[in-house]
Amino acid sequence: MFKWLHPLAKPETVYQLCGRLYPWLLTAALLLLLLGNIWGLAFTPPDYQQGDSYRIIHIHVPAAIMSMGAYSAMAIAAFVALVWQVKVAQWSVLAIAPIGAVYTAIALITGMAWGKPMWGTWWVWDARLTSELILLFLYLGVIALSGAFSDRQTGAKVASLLAVVGVINLPVIHFSVEWWNTLHQGASITKFAKPSIDPSMLWPLLISILAFKVLMLALICLRLRTAILVNEQHRPWVRAMAGDQ
């Protein structure tokens, strides 16, 4: 397996690979997003309790799932970067962080827009909303830390370390917030029952989740390519390529 993985530590190979994958991933993501969202918006019956407002699920749930998926991807990259000193892994930490932050922001905004008709207020200190807010702070911390150093390499390494620290803390934060929420249940508005989802509603949701995932991969490819170029700008292969254009 290491024989197969080893070329991936070489920036030039990763740059070419990402460049080849990017257009396919982006096209697939857009098609899947269109399919999933149009199906979810127009071709499924409304929820018997929530009416048509439940259709927000088709972006809220994918964004929320992938915001956590992005964090685990970032933490794995950070771990690889710290343990094996793989430069490409360091740069991918910085490439993933803004994507994760945007997904988290989407999950929060759509959660608020869904909460207003269901709970009657824009914001409820619900366990899931609160953990998602803290996740956003963690992402912003990684982004801010990486930009705070005059030396780009130091910034990338320190941000990787923070991502690993964050991933150890994330379960602790999540469970403490959940426990805090059950403790203060009286203050929050009663949640609606979570009925099992009907298959006719499930398929478009699954497609949308896949769309957000493929879109994340496409964005990682795009951003990682830029990061590789910026960090390798003095290497002959980058100069040769830039000279050709």
Binding site: I134, F137, L138, L140, G141, A144, L145, L162, V165, G166, N169, V172, I173, S176, V177, W179, W180
Partner: peptide
């Protein structure tokens, strides 16, 4: 921005 999120569990308990 870095440490306040890490303080949250302590604050809660």
């Amino acid at each position: 921005l870095l440490i306040l999120p890490l303080y949250i569990p302590l604050l809660i308990f």
